[in-house]
Design a protein around this nucleic acid. Structure first.
Lengths: 204, 204
DNA sequence: GGAGAATACGAGCGAATACTCGTATTCGCA
DNA sequence: TGCGAATACGAGTATTCGCTCGTATTCTCC
């Protein structure tokens, strides 16, 4: 009970290093996945020694955790942009989908490391926990949209639909990010068609 | 160039062992994924020693490979059942979906190890190769259905739609297998709704 | 029943890897 | 300018895990 972990006072250099490490880690995680990413590889990618890595992070999981925190901030912004608009429920279905989908697609395209970390089964348990609040918030947002646009739905059905919508979206993300240019645009169009086809009968 | 790998003559006991090992491996892979599954754990689950394991399989990947082969046989049967019916394209869309989806869902429910092995990013490269023919065959089948039901589609568009359909299906499988009883039935209904909504505009 | 092959065992080897430790250097600040 | 803290290093440690090897047992077939 004596090994208090006094948080050390960081220098500006240290703060910079932390950012460098996280950026390097994002790349390594994205390229190889969590388990296969070695801490030495992350250190090398950040241009520092393994020992230095552990000046800033307690262990490998802490790196992923911090990276997750960084993602969460950006993800929240993307969600805000996607769901924050007012007078949202009165829009045309297609336009609503555009406004909802585009920012989140953009986030996923800009942060390939995100899915690599969060969508993989070799993710450490602590990370799964970190992802839960975002996931729950997203589910809530989607449910709210359904409340507004399909008031006739029962609670269970609404929840189920929200889950399906999110699942579909997440499934299509790799198809979108894997493609380039026109292919990617086409993939996004297909994604919207899928969601539209599923939503139209109840929320047209 | 002298270390020929003469295939040894198996006894009945050995054949049984192989089956036991594969069944045990399916369970361990399903529970923990490929990388995290240790060969010692598989041996223990099969009730044999690590040494004995290697009497029957050259290495860990060979176990996965053989397991994959076993899955492929059953998967092909499920595909045959799903797509083999005659006069298929003339059916009502809903009924067609029933016939296509149910066998493949049943296969996935009956073989939880399948997705655990094939859908994970930590899959060894050899396995990915083994999965490709099935994937390609499935894609071809779906495209054939689209040819019959939506003849107006261009080739690119058809291919894209087939990919999307498969992606959606695979995304929904975890939602289905994770659920039980009525929940599962409901999940399958939703899955069909999604596919129907996507297909109806072009293949109604 | 006996010879040779197949099966079985499990301690332990070798490589990979997360992480440490002793030491050297640089920074913040009075 | 000098002192304590932060940063940096990288060889070394402890552990995990795929796999081997020497040996013992059981099966097949004559």
């Amino acid at each position: 009970m004596t090994d208090e972990e006094r948080p050390r006072r960081r220098q500006a250099r240290g703060e910079r290093r932390i950012e460098e490490i996280l950026t390097a880690a994002a790349g390594v995680f994205a390229a190889t996945g969590y388990e296969a990413a070695t801490t030495n590889a992350i250190a090398a990618a950040a241009g520092i020694s393994p020992g230095s890595l552990y000046q800033f992070f307690k262990n490998k999981e802490a790196i992923a955790q911090a990276l997750a925190d960084r993602f969460v901030v950006q993800m929240r912004a993307a969600h805000q942009e996607a769901f924050g608009a007012v007078g949202f429920a009165a829009l045309d279905l297609d336009e609503m989908l555009d406004r909802m989908i585009d920012p989140i697609v953009a986030f996923n395209v800009a942060n390939p490391g995100f899915k690599a970390l969060f969508a993989r089964p070799d993710m450490p348990p602590g990370l799964a926990e970190a992802a839960r609040p975002i996931q729950a918030a997203l589910l809530g947002r989607v449910e709210q949209v359904l409340v507004a646009r399909a008031p006739g739905l029962g609670e269970d059905e609404r929840r189920r639909m929200a889950r399906v919508l999110i699942q579909i979206f997440q499934a299509m993300v790799p198809l979108v990010t894997a493609a380039e240019g026109d292919e990617r645009t086409a993939a996004v169009v297909e994604l919207k068609k899928v969601l539209r086809g599923y939503l139209a009968p109840v929320a047209g």
